[in-house]
Simulated assay, not measured.
Amino acid sequence: MNRRPAKAADKLVFVLSLVPYLLEQGVVDVAEAAEHFGVAEEEIRDAVRLIATSGLPGETSTYLPNDLFDIDWDSFLDDDVIVIVHHVAIDDTPRLSAREAAALIAGLQYLSALPENVGHAGLGSLMAKLTEGASAAPSRLAVAETASDAGLGIIREAVGRGRQIEFDYVNGVGERMRRRADPVHIASLGQDWYVQAYCHLREDFRVFRLDRMSGLALTDEPIGDHTDRPPLPEAIFRGSDSDLRVVVDVAPGALTLLSDYRADRSAEQVDGLTRVTLRVAHYHGLKRLVAGLPGLVTVVAPEEARRAVAEWARAGLERYGLPGASHGSSG
């Protein structure tokens, strides 16, 4: 078979791949290395000779014996076996700490639990490499599946199979109602997931927030033809005349996170914070909004809004038996 001469850049990439392989194997036959990389044996021998002339110059900017790679020449020339007996620069490569590796592995565990990634071999392989490549053994972490994760799996299956779903839904004003819908699109905004679906109760397209859906069930009923569905709006939250207005003090760095909820563009500086007016469909939604920005948002008015958030926070403290749960101002 005729082979095209390799370019210098290709040779460099090949050598950079070959060195870690040889170090990991310790002792390897030329034929074995050639089979592993899918190249001719002579290409392996040429690369090994190139490795033996490579290194990292010392402080004098000249190459001394210990600044170069070295191989067992007797094994290489007599037995066609490659053994690197001295290497340079490899041990200086930065390595992940045990905590960094554990954090990345936890993220990969979450991804591998998503329905579309179940059985994905690449994620498992990457987790194993992170474990082996860390400077110390990473802490063992387990990522628990949440109710939202389970619901998302049902909706993804419904979209993929073209089946209707049924669920209980709490709307913006706190009303709970059983719905049947044709899911057509799933989207995320920040930490929230939204489902665009044709609602059979309203006989129109609606956008449902996943964390307000419960009792999700996949039905055997096929969805209708919705090729003419409207595009998903860029701003999931859209105001209406029935919205409630709430005055809050916001840390300057968090102001952009509330841009979709701003009632207007007016703002006032108060004690280093920015005072703005938000619009919310219900004070129930305000609790969640404040909880998502801990320490960055303070409800100023009206008093009903302050009381709703304060009572919700105290209820959370009571569940943990923390001091301050049974008293405190409405702010």
Rank of each mutant, 00 (worst) to 15 (best):
N117C: 13
T298A: 15
S17V: 04
L322D: 00
P233S: 15
S329P: 12
A305Q: 02
H327L: 11
H87S: 10
R245Q: 14
L12P: 04
G26Y: 10
G133Q: 15
L257N: 01
I165F: 06
I44G: 05
L258V: 01
P138N: 04
R209T: 01
T219W: 11
L210E: 10
T256A: 03
E303F: 05
I84K: 01
D241A: 15
Y194S: 08
G328Q: 03
V248D: 01
N117W: 11
L96E: 11
D204Y: 07
L257Y: 00
L218F: 09
A33W: 02
I186A: 13
F167T: 03
A98Y: 00
S259C: 08
H284K: 14
L126R: 03
R229M: 04
A187L: 02
I165G: 01
L189Q: 02
D67T: 09
S188T: 15
L257H: 00
T146H: 08
G174I: 05
L258K: 04
V290T: 14
P323Q: 05
A315V: 12
I82Q: 06
L257P: 01
A181Q: 06
D228L: 12
A103Q: 09
E303D: 06
V88G: 13
S148G: 09
A310G: 10
G328A: 03
V248F: 05
A147Y: 12
Q196V: 01
A106R: 03
G122Y: 12
P5V: 11
G321W: 08
R49V: 11
A101Q: 10
A113F: 04
I82L: 08
V15H: 04
G328D: 01
A158T: 04
E132A: 14
A291T: 05
P5N: 07
I51M: 13
L296R: 08
R238Q: 13
H36W: 09
G224T: 12
D211R: 14
P65W: 10
V27N: 11
S75D: 14
H327C: 11
F76A: 02
I90M: 14
W73V: 15
C199P: 08
H87I: 06
L273H: 10
R238S: 15
E166Y: 03
L296S: 15
R279E: 02
A33N: 03
D192M: 03
R238M: 08
S139I: 07
V13Q: 11
D70Y: 01
S188E: 13
E32M: 06
L111W: 14
L201P: 07
R229Y: 00
H87E: 09
A305N: 02
V309S: 08
D264V: 02
E304H: 01
K11C: 14
